[in-house]
């Protein structure tokens, strides 16, 4: 499920890749077993396979995306994430990825828990609702519409938007350890006041050892 338009970066081998995918790639180990939830047309898995020779599976609900992903050579499974990941064994993947899909999920809390059950690590990315342009639009009295949130309030699939602060607190309350966090705007890293200046948040997570 791809919910926004993306700038792309040209890679060494002349292929272009979305900057968020390029960053996710840095968090995936060579030959890792990877599960991409809401894999869309399979672009990320194809990239990870090329970069890291990973063993990947994708989950995609939409018929059209599913077919495209399969045509792109991805092992894609048509399942609804809202009903959890019961078809996957505990700790059976090195990395489970949820790329810009969290905000469109109803069972948000459940899916993050499931990701950390199935994967040793999880990567979650989402559009930061705290980004200043969103705040400005609300200040002027309207729901934000932007490149990262390209929908009107009445047709948006996004039901659980959150800010970086919100997600930090969520992790804190759910015994989730943030291994690493990166925030970007238009493909550039944001280190200063990320909750205000960043429009895409990327988290590398695992379960807190208690």
């Amino acid at each position: 499920m791809s919910l926004m338009n993306h700038p792309t970066t040209t890679m060494k081998d002349n292929t272009t890749i979305r900057p968020d995918f390029a960053l996710i790639s840095q968090w995936v180990k060579p030959q890792a077993k990877v599960l991409d939830l809401g894999c869309g047309d399979g672009e990320l898995l194809t990239h990870l396979h090329r970069q890291h020779d990973i063993r990947g599976y994708g989950v995609e609900k939409d018929d059209k995306n599913w077919l495209t992903a399969m045509e792109n050579g991805v092992d894609v499974l048509q399942m609804d994430l809202e009903s959890g990941l019961s078809g996957f064994e505990d700790q059976s993947f090195d990395t489970v990825i949820l790329s810009q899909t969290l905000q469109a999920m109803h069972n948000t809390e459940g899916i993050v828990k499931e990701m950390l059950r199935v994967g040793r690590e999880a990567i979650v990315t989402f559009p930061n609702f705290g980004y200043w342009r969103n705040r400005t639009q609300i200040l002027f009295g309207q729901m934000p519409v932007s490149k990262t949130l390209p929908y009107e309030w009445y047709n948006t699939p996004n039901v659980h938007l959150c800010t970086i602060h919100d997600f930090d607190a969520f992790c804190q309350n759910h015994d989730i350890e943030i291994i690493e966090r990166k925030v970007i705007t238009e493909g550039n890293m944001v280190n200063f006041m990320p909750n205000l200046l960043g429009n895409l948040a990327m988290y590398r997570l695992h379960k807190k050892q208690i």
Binding site: D75, V76, L77, M79, F88
Partner: peptide, 13 residues
């Protein structure tokens, strides 16, 4: 599908 995944076999579902 699950049994195939457990064995890391290529599967599309």
């Amino acid at each position: 599908v699950k049994a195939l995944l457990d064995n890391e076999i290529s599967v599309r579902y």
